[in-house]
Write a protein that binds this DNA or RNA. Structure first.
Length: 203
DNA sequence: ACGGGGATGGGCT
DNA sequence: GCCCATCCCCGTA
């Protein structure tokens, strides 16, 4: 269960997106510690990618941390209400990232349930249990990830990713979700997920 | 089962 | 003033 080091993140974004599957995302806060297994990701590979916030070399306050070194967290507000958590990849000044789209609870599922629904986990309906963290906005609520977690060093101790023991799994790929505006990049098969995992956001 | 639309605010033209 | 890497609810079947 070793924390992933800088070198892991400095590689090709498509490789990192696939290899993040099965790894554990850990959020160590003042009063809680939540651990989840990453089961679904999307790669946003760089300035040439019309689906990326960094398309055409765009650099603003919002996406500034995409230009930081690989292994930095990129958290942004979407639709005015939700956050999305990304892992910055590759070298500094190469603005690429991997969006984490779904996770599978490993530790502190009770606290996740409180954050997401304000209820104890056992009293959730089966639909609510499945909806705990099976989407990018949902997992940020359930793991307590918000704008305060933007720009954190994932090689630090507040928010990090570590190796895990896994049963063998196969990786499926599909086009990324909700980027219809991205022209020829909309069809690139850069969404990856663990086949058969029940928390994957959609098949 | 599936589809349409509302919530809600920051980024950008 | 429109667009959004979302989610949930409420229609119609």
């Amino acid at each position: 269960m070793k924390k992933l080091e800088r070198d892991f993140y400095l590689r090709d974004t498509l490789v990192v997106a696939k290899e993040l599957l099965g790894k554990q995302l850990v959020h160590e806060a003042q009063d809680f510690r939540i651990v989840c297994r990453i089961v679904e990701t999307e790669a946003y590979v760089g300035p040439e990618d019309k689906g990326s916030h960094s398309y055409g070399g765009r650099r603003t306050n919002r996406n500034e941390v995409m230009y930081h070194i690989g292994g930095t967290s990129y958290v942004y507000l979407i639709y005015g209400m939700y956050y999305c958590f990304n892992v910055v990849t590759e070298q500094a000044d190469k603005p690429a990232a991997v969006l984490v789209r779904a996770v599978d609870p490993v530790e502190s599922v009770g606290h996740m349930s409180q954050l997401r629904y304000g209820m104890e986990f056992p009293s959730l309906s089966s639909k609510q249990k499945l909806g705990l963290c099976n989407g990018p906005g949902k997992l940020c609520i359930a793991m307590g990830i918000g704008k305060a977690e933007n720009g954190l060093d994932l090689c630090g101790s507040k928010l990090y990713i570590r190796d895990a023991q896994n049963e063998p799994f196969s990786i499926k790929s599909t086009p990324r979700i909700n980027i219809d505006y991205a022209g020829e990049y909309a069809g690139k098969p850069w969404r990856f997920y663990i086949e058969g995992n029940k928390y994957v956001s959609k098949i």
